[in-house]
């Protein structure tokens, strides 16, 4: 289970997260939507301390961290229980597709190399990238790079997978293949927290949709409720803008 309480973050004097409370059950797929600059990325990045929250607690599985007093070991602990998929892929440019997947399995999880490589090959097959296993990121299309990015995250067997707008940087022609792969991950009841502007996709795979505005969770519920019968005026006007 994932539980955030009172998560607070500011950049300088600007508050970006104003006390976020959020519980995600094991196997739940949660989609976060909301206008630009409302703190969606920051929320995800605070969960694994890519951004350091000022206050609140973060619980991932058996680890609970008080954000204000997080130790280095606790931060590593959170990072090792979560996996992150970046908008701009962020693949290791000096590693091949296969090495991008094996890297953390070997250096962080200390799994035997043969085992890590077998896992990578299975994931490459699943993501349709077997032929590209020995290619470096620079030789891959955007869609292929993001599939490696998702594969790298899948391999970690994390308690929680975080996706920050994984299709926003892609040329339209590659969006479909990346969403397909995410659907496949979702079908396994992997716990996921996804920021996306793909409303149709959210409707399909989400157990719950969260609407954020101004660093707060304004409204949340099953996709049918949020998309068909939003309660808050801010949700309604946002949805009008993005789905018109």
């Amino acid at each position: 289970m994932i539980r955030l309480t009172g998560l607070t973050k500011r950049f300088g004097a600007t508050p970006v997260l104003n006390g976020i409370d959020l519980t995600i059950e094991q196997g739940e797929r949660v989609v976060v939507i909301g206008p630009s600059g409302t703190g969606k990325s920051t929320l995800l990045r605070c969960i694994n301390f890519l951004d350091r929250p000022e206050a609140g607690t973060i619980q991932v599985g058996d680890l609970t961290v008080d954000a204000a007093h997080a130790s280095r070991a606790q931060i590593l602990g959170l990072r090792r229980r979560t996996a992150f998929v970046f908008q701009n892929y962020a693949l290791f440019a000096n590693k091949t597709a296969r090495q991008n997947i094996t890297e953390a399995l070997v250096t962080v999880q200390r799994r035997p190399r043969a085992e890590a490589e077998a896992r990578a090959d299975a994931i490459l097959a699943e993501t349709g990238l077997t032929e590209k296993a020995d290619s470096f990121p620079a030789a891959l299309s955007g869609g292929q790079q993001q599939r490696v990015g998702i594969g790298r995250a899948m391999a970690l067997d994390a308690d929680l997978m975080l996706f920050d707008e994984p299709t926003s940087a892609l040329d339209p022609e590659w969006v479909g293949e990346v969403l397909d792969l995410m659907r496949r991950v979702a079908e396994r009841r992997q716990t996921m927290l996804i920021v996306t502007h793909e409303m149709q996709f959210a409707r399909e795979i989400a157990d719950r949709v969260i609407f954020m505005d101004g660093g707060r969770i304004v409204e949340q519920g099953p996709p049918a409720q949020i998309f068909e019968a939003p309660q808050d005026e801010r949700t309604r006007s946002f949805l009008r803008r993005v789905t018109r």
Partner: peptide
């Protein structure tokens, strides 16, 4: 972003 990816995988 590669520094962050390295941090993110732990």
């Amino acid at each position: 972003s590669q520094w962050e990816a390295a941090e993110a995988v732990g």
